[in-house]
């Protein structure tokens, strides 16, 4: 594709093995790539990367949406972004109370030396990312 005819929007598709979460045109996507967050605008060069735990942010016009993802990979084409996530949740799906509990438990485990360190760390990361997404999407307090 020539540089002179960049696509105007990105067709964003987010699927998990369980469901189809998002399929819409967006202006901008931000993803948690393994080597750091990536911002993607229309006309991005083809890219294949895996995802880590974090948030996906996508913007269309002035409306911004957030999603929680945990592992997966993404294929970026100039006019299309396909995210295949192991777990993906919309802010409405996230149980903040459960996430807080998971965070506390994980923190406690990380302090005891003989527990499974990696497992607890992943749990902690997931809980924090979930809480972050839920907080960002929540309407501002009146």
């Amino acid at each position: 594709m020539s540089i002179f005819e960049l696509p105007k929007a990105i067709q964003l598709v987010i699927v998990t093995p369980e469901r189809n979460l998002v399929s819409q045109e967006v202006d901008e996507v931000t993803l948690p790539g393994v080597e750091g967050y990536l911002g993607i605008l229309p006309g991005h060069t083809p890219l294949l990367t895996s995802l880590k735990i974090g948030e996906i942010r996508y913007r269309q016009g002035k409306s911004v949406n957030y999603l929680f993802v945990s592992w997966g990979f993404v294929e970026v084409l100039p006019d299309r972004v396909t995210v295949l996530a192991d777990v993906a949740e919309t802010p409405e799906d996230i149980d903040v109370v459960a996430a807080k509990k998971a965070r506390d438990e994980a923190e406690k485990k990380l302090k005891t030396p003989d527990s499974e360190f990696l497992v607890a760390q992943v749990a902690l990361e997931q809980a924090l990312a979930r809480m972050q997404v839920a907080a960002k999407a929540a309407p501002l307090p009146k």
Binding site: V34, E35, P46, L47, L48, T49, S50, L77
Partner: peptide, 8 residues
């Protein structure tokens, strides 16, 4: 398919 950038 196109030639991708790969990360990692």
């Amino acid at each position: 398919g196109p030639d991708y950038l790969y990360e990692p």
